[in-house]
Design a protein around this nucleic acid. Structure first.
Lengths: 204, 204
DNA sequence: TTGCAAAACGGGGTGGCCCTCCATATCGTA
DNA sequence: TACGATATGGAGGGCCACCCCGTTTTGCAA
C-alpha cells in the first residue's frame, strides 16, 4: 500500500492519479473537519474530493490515518515550536509554554486531541512516524531540560503531560468558551490545586 | 411523557407494562454498556430487552437520558460518599479522596465520564436533577470545606475539578491500565508538576 | 509511438445504525 | 365487562462505513 511521500521515501512512487486523489482527499478532509469536527462523514469527504468512497478507503484504511495526514503539517509546526523553545533560558517556562501551544492547536483543530491520543496505543507498526510519536519526541526534550532545572518532578513523564493536555482539550472541546477553559484547567493542572505556597507558575 | 418514579413523583403513575419495559431497558442497557461502552447500539439494547426500538426511544428520547437512568444508582452512591467524607477531619484529604472515587466510578462505568460532561451544557430543563448537578452539588460542599481549611485555592471551582477528573478518565478510558493511569494523572493534576517543595499530597 | 500488465478507480451492494409512523394490543377503570 | 387512554413494535426512510469487482488509467518497454 503506497504512502504519502512525506512519510517514507516510497519504495515505488505513487502513480500520478493516485497522488492527485490523495491530495484532493486530504484537502477535502481538512475542510470537512474544520466544519464538522473529526467525526465528519467519510462519504462526504470523498464526495467533496470528487472521488469514489472506495478510493478514500484505499488510501486511508482507517479514519485515524486520514486524520494523521490532515494534521501532519500542524504537528510539524508544533515540533518546530518545541525546537525553538529548547533555547529558552527558563526550561520550566518553556515546557509550560509549549504545552499551552499544544493545547491551543488541539482546540483549534477539533479532533486533534482525540486523534493524537488514539494513536498512542493503536499499535500500528506500519506507520513509522505517527503524529503521536513526533509530538512525544519533541516534548521529551523540553521535559528533560525542565527536569534538570528542577522545574518538573522526576516521576512525571512526557506521556503523562500530553495525556493531561489532551484530556483537558477533549473535555472542553465543545463548550462555548473552550479555549479559555482549556487554558485555565491546564494551568491548574500544572500548578496543582494547592494554594500558592510555592512559586506561582507563570501564565503562558 | 411519563418518567421513572425515582425522578419525580409521577403526576400519573406509569402503566404496569410501561414500567416493566422501562426497567427491562435499563437493565439491558447496563449490560450492553458494560460490554461495549457508552456508544453501545440502541437497537441492540432494545433487542436485548425484548422490546421494539420505538419503545426504547419513547422512554428515552436521547441516549443521554438512557445513560442517566443507568447511572443514577452509581451517582447516588457517589453523593453518599461525599456526604460521609464531609465528616473527615482533613478537608483537603476528603476532597482528594472523593475525586479519586469519582474517577474510579467513571473508569469502571465506561462512558460515565463523557455522559456527565455532556450533561453539563446540554441545557435540558425538563430533567430536574441530572447526574451532573447531583455530583456538582455533592462536590461543592467538599470543596468549600477544603477551601476554608486552606487546602484548595480560592479560584478553583468544583466544576473545574470535575472537568479535570472527567477529562482524565476520558483520556485513559481505553488504555489497558486505565485505572492506574487515571489515578496517577489525577494525583499529578492535584499536586502540580512542580517538585515537592510543598506538603506532598497524600495518596488516596 | 504503441501495446500491455499492473495499478488505481468508483458505482453499487451489504449491513448497521438512529429515529418515526401508525395500525394493533394492552391496561385500568367505571 | 366494555371502553377510552395508553403503550407497543414492525416496517420503512435516511444516513453511514466498508467491500466487491468490472472498468479505466498509467507508465514502461519494445
Amino acid at each position: 500500500m503506497p504512502q504519502h511521500s512525506r512519510t517514507t521515501p516510497p519504495a515505488r512512487p505513487m502513480r500520478a492519479d493516485a497522488r492527485r486523489n490523495y491530495d484532493r482527499i486530504v484537502t477535502a478532509a481538512a475542510e470537512a473537519i474544520a466544519e464538522h469536527g473529526a467525526e465528519a462523514s467519510l462519504e462526504e469527504i470523498a464526495r467533496r474530493a470528487g472521488v469514489g468512497s472506495a478510493t478514500l478507503h484505499r488510501h486511508f484504511p482507517s479514519r485515524q490515518r486520514l486524520l494523521e495526514a490532515v494534521f501532519r503539517d500542524k504537528v510539524e509546526a508544533l515540533c518546530a515550536t518545541a525546537a525553538d523553545l529548547a533555547a529558552d533560558p527558563d526550561p520550566g517556562h518553556a515546557l509550560a509554554t509549549w504545552l499551552g501551544a499544544v493545547a491551543r492547536h488541539a482546540m483549534s483543530n477539533r479532533g486533534l486531541a482525540a486523534s493524537l491520543m488514539r494513536g498512542a496505543h493503536d499499535g500500528d507498526p506500519t506507520l513509522g512516524a505517527t503524529c503521536h510519536t513526533m509530538i512525544t519526541n519533541a516534548g521529551a526534550d523540553l521535559l528533560a531540560r525542565a527536569r534538570r532545572a528542577n522545574a518538573a518532578r522526576p516521576d512525571v513523564s512526557i506521556a503523562d503531560l500530553l495525556k493531561l493536555v489532551n484530556a483537558i482539550c477533549l473535555a472542553v472541546e465543545q463548550e462555548p468558551d473552550g479555549a479559555a477553559q482549556a487554558d485555565r484547567l491546564l494551568t491548574l493542572a500544572l500548578t496543582g490545586v494547592h494554594p500558592a505556597g510555592e512559586t506561582a507558575r507563570r501564565r503562558m
